[in-house]
């Protein structure tokens, strides 16, 4: 743990409030029968796609291409997950199996 207990609690409280506000805001901002601004509607359709792309990069941010295992286990595991997911369409299998496969790679192979 690199944060103190107090820091961690403050951080979690902020995350909880931010999460709740995204869920509650439409009920406050957009009462029934009032039209949502077009730009807001557009962002709502478009940003979820961009955000998940950003989160994939975020998860890989500490992978170094120039040292250690050069990102090879990550690349292999991601390729395997993509193939298995396109083939079986089973989230449990893709996420669970993919993680175990990656753990095997970094513990036993690389």
């Amino acid at each position: 743990m690199i944060l103190t207990t107090k820091e961690a609690l403050i951080l979690l409280a902020a995350i909880a409030v931010a999460t709740f506000s995204t869920r509650a805001l439409p009920f406050l901002l957009f009462p029934p029968h009032k039209k949502t601004p077009a730009f807001v509607q557009y962002l709502g359709k478009m940003l979820p796609y961009a955000t998940i792309g950003m989160l994939v990069v975020y998860c890989l941010k500490d992978v170094s291409l120039w040292s250690g295992s050069h990102g090879v286990p990550e690349a292999i595991a991601m390729l395997a997950i993509t193939l298995v997911h396109l083939w079986k369409h089973n989230i449990l299998l893709s996420v669970g199996g993919g993680t175990l496969f990656y753990m095997f790679l970094v513990q036993a192979v690389f």
Binding site: A18, R23, L25, P26, F30, L55
Partner: peptide, 17 residues
């Protein structure tokens, strides 16, 4: 932390609608 939480949960803004 607040910023990324808002981005991650932004889709929820439209669930309420």
């Amino acid at each position: 932390a607040v910023f990324i939480t808002l981005m991650v949960n932004l889709r929820h803004l439209f669930y309420g609608l």
